[in-house]
């Protein structure tokens, strides 16, 4: 089978119809490196096209436009009555934002420590905390507060860490490399704050008795 005919057949492949490969074509491909590469490129391009053309979610356009409108900055207006109207609008907006904040306060974020934190002095344990959020939160202010006898590895001497992050809808995993400095139990406080709404979580750390290596008896 010549290269030209093989490549014409390769061009007819569909992403999920690999079985259509004929015996002649298989024999040719087993010998011809250039056609092998051609087939490989074709298969890759085919699959990338299939991956890269997702179904468009229902009412996506309306949702995007409506959300964008809700975040639009209103231009300033002039004139006495217009000013009066603007003031009235401002009062309404403030009331609305309070209402929205109130509704946000009701949004539950669940935190779950994925492993027991039991440490010996000097030991570092990567602690995984899962934050489950029912909605994506942009620029959430995260705070981690530590007692004096605990540390985050790599942040020596720092007892409070603050940073901004975007939390996605669903599960977010926070990994804290916790180190025990003294043989005492302790509590780490984690806070997530967004638009004045706070959520606090507590992580319990248990200090373990140091293991003593006794010499083996003969």
């Amino acid at each position: 089978m010549p290269c030209g005919s093989t490549r014409k057949q390769i061009d007819k492949w569909l992403p999920d119809v690999r079985q259509s490969l004929s015996v002649e074509m298989s024999q040719h491909l087993s010998k011809c490196e250039l056609c092998q590469q051609y087939a490989q490129n074709h298969l890759l391009a085919d699959n990338l096209k299939s991956i890269g053309r997702p179904e468009i979610p229902v009412a996506l356009q309306q949702r995007i436009i409506a959300n964008a409108h809700s975040q639009k900055n209103k231009p300033s207006l002039n004139g006495y009555w217009i000013k009066f109207g603007a003031a009235a609008m401002l009062v309404m907006t403030i009331s609305l934002s309070f209402m929205m904040n109130d509704s946000a306060r009701q949004i539950a974020m669940v935190a779950q420590v994925l492993s027991n934190i039991e440490l010996e002095v000097g030991e570092v344990q990567s602690t995984k905390i899962r934050l489950s959020s029912p909605q994506s939160i942009k620029q959430a202010a995260m705070t981690v507060k530590l007692p004096t006898h605990l540390a985050i590895s790599g942040y020596d001497g720092i007892k409070q860490l603050n940073w901004l992050t975007n939390l996605k809808r669903g599960n977010n995993l926070m990994v804290l490399p916790i180190q025990l400095l003294e043989p005492l139990d302790g509590i780490i406080q984690v806070e997530v704050e967004h638009q004045g709404v706070k959520k606090s979580f507590i992580i319990n750390v248990r200090a373990l008795e140091p293991t003593i290596n006794t010499p083996e008896t003969i």
Binding site: I51, G52, R53, P54, I56, P57, L60, Q61, R63, I64, I65, N67, A68, S136, K168, R169, G170
Partner: peptide
Amino acid sequence: IPMLYRMAYQWTLNGDDAEDLVQ
């Protein structure tokens, strides 16, 4: 929007992230 969503999906490989990006 459909074209932007498609591209955002290709870059993020996740529907929610793609919509967030277009938004």
